[in-house]
Design a protein around this nucleic acid. Sequence first.
DNA 1: TTTATAAACAGAACACTGTTCACTATCTGA
DNA 2: TCAGATAGTGAACAGTGTTCTGTTTATAAA
Lengths: 211, 211
Amino acid sequence: MARRNEHSKDELQRLTLKAVKDFLTLYPPQELSLRKVAKLIGYAPATVINSFGSYGELLLAANAEALDELHTLSAVAIRDENNPQLALRKLSRVYLAYARKYPYRWHLAFEHRIPDQKVLPEWQKSRIDRLFALFTEQLSRTGAQRTLQDIHIASRVIWAGVHGICLLAAGGGALQEKHATGEQMLDMFLKNFMGSYMKQEKTYSKLSTEI
Amino acid sequence: MARRNEHSKDELQRLTLKAVKDFLTLYPPQELSLRKVAKLIGYAPATVINSFGSYGELLLAANAEALDELHTLSAVAIRDENNPQLALRKLSRVYLAYARKYPYRWHLAFEHRIPDQKVLPEWQKSRIDRLFALFTEQLSRTGAQRTLQDIHIASRVIWAGVHGICLLAAGGGALQEKHATGEQMLDMFLKNFMGSYMKQEKTYSKLSTEI
DNA sequence: TTTATAAACAGAACACTGTTCACTATCTGA
DNA sequence: TCAGATAGTGAACAGTGTTCTGTTTATAAA
């Protein structure tokens, strides 16, 4: 049996990614396998590999879709928000909501490891950068006088904080936080960090000896 | 061949955990396997399973050792530090140093997922709690007048921030940050967060925390 | 219309993986 | 000396990702 030609190459990829996405909405990545994906879409395992190069690259593609989804949700959420601090807050809530609603996809998106020292594709890095950029843009709008480098660092710090908090609030395992909600942690984080961030004028690096 | 009796049950476990630890010092967890562990210690795969219950539980035990190591390093680092803010800074640096030096063990310690809905052992949770407690203690010493719940939340926020930053600074993959060092991010995070955290209510307890 | 070529798959085989279970040696206590 | 427990193995099993060979079909040229 060969050459069924029921789907074009693109259709087959979309079909496969949809199957992966649907699976990861309900079940963790560790329970997925190449052979299960193949069975889900009614093709042979080798066909899936033919289409994506390897199982790992298939996961990477699914990963990219999740990042796109998260980016779109974020962009929409802050579209009409003029106050940059409120926008940052909304951004963080979108992350938390996504991590809660699709823990497995969220988990895969940020924890997927490339097998060895393989260079991971540029389109993947650019997707991460695009997520960071959402924070950078809002920081630029705050009116605080900071260098570009400072804004860059601050955007990473905020992302890191939000990510860590989502890990505690929505990530399974031993890290699960019980006595504090994600919203509480996010609010305390942003309120304190931004409160101090807005007040200083000097670049941060000059203050390295203060503490 | 049976009953070699070269090692006691405890010795065998220590031997196995050492092999895992040594392996993870150089190679990522995904390259390890039950059969490799068995080969490393010169026993049959089934013997390792007999000893730990399953391969997953072996990883969990190795995990626990890493958490212990991190806790010990942290405790030592702040032993003679009276200034709680400086202690928090030192704590964060220990985390960063560990994540950089042993990325695979660090990675395993915090990203290891239990297979399904299996309840993960209490000794694992308590190890995480012990790590959090290091932050909580220092926060209690700052002199800032906060409720216990506030301190609890703040400790989680700080841990989350530190963890996220370590992910950016030392975690491989697409998250690797190039234009900012871990130290820069940690300092900006702690300085801003603590700066604002300390200031509320400060007028009532001014002298205690002035440097 | 016939023929060559390339594309689209499938199937079997390979080297792995973690786990189970029957089994055998060896040690220990009576 | 003789059970019984202990320590450990080896083979088998179901599953994994990947590779390679082969076959069917669509397409283009003659």
